[in-house]
Design a protein around this nucleic acid. Sequence first.
DNA 1: CCGTATCCTGTCGGATACTG
DNA 2: CAGTATCCGACAGGATACGG
Lengths: 114, 114
Amino acid sequence: MTQRSRELCSCPASILMDVLSGPWTMYILWVLSTSGATRFGALKRRIEGISTKMLTERLRMLEQEGIVYRHYEPTVPPQVTYGLTERAQELVAILDQLNALAQRWYGQEKAQAG
Amino acid sequence: MTQRSRELCSCPASILMDVLSGPWTMYILWVLSTSGATRFGALKRRIEGISTKMLTERLRMLEQEGIVYRHYEPTVPPQVTYGLTERAQELVAILDQLNALAQRWYGQEKAQAG
DNA sequence: CCGTATCCTGTCGGATACTG
DNA sequence: CAGTATCCGACAGGATACGG
């Protein structure tokens, strides 16, 4: 499993990959990078098919890695907004390269860079 | 699951990510990039803990994506060697950046660039 | 040596119901 | 609205045995 490979490799890139590898993760990042900060409900609606559990799990993980921030507004009803951190920008830049490479390899269907 | 997110995103990077996301995949690439072409048995020994099934699965997938090549020598006993393709070099270059980024984030324990 | 085939288990993740 | 708690089925992946 992925966790195993991280321990054995101890290569920093693997740690990052383990984070990005999670289901929906790339898609969440892409939505946040194109739409900007988004509220939980809106995020869930945009990512059609994702379960509440999955979305919160991924967001918690990304938050813990400092890639996504969480802003809680204690109104009634409460509003929680998620967005990309400074850190994430660096990451997205690299993912863009990956995207560019993938487009050259697989044909450039859509240029949905992050 | 990952497959789902690919369909929905249709972003080429996601396709690539799906490939790289597989368990052990990054580790396999790292071993191949640092050790050069390697025979199946040696590969399995270097990647301690991986099962035969897993290793063949990952190699088949990487081969299908044109990232890894397979060279079969019909000697007795047969020798099968795996190595990185030209394509893989481009990929590894980007993964190096990811590695560099990860080192800055998580501290540079070991500089095991691919 | 380099795998494939089969079985079997652990875990991931969806569905549902419920709270501040 | 934004989650948490619980249950449960599917399937990924390990162990084992066997074939070219």
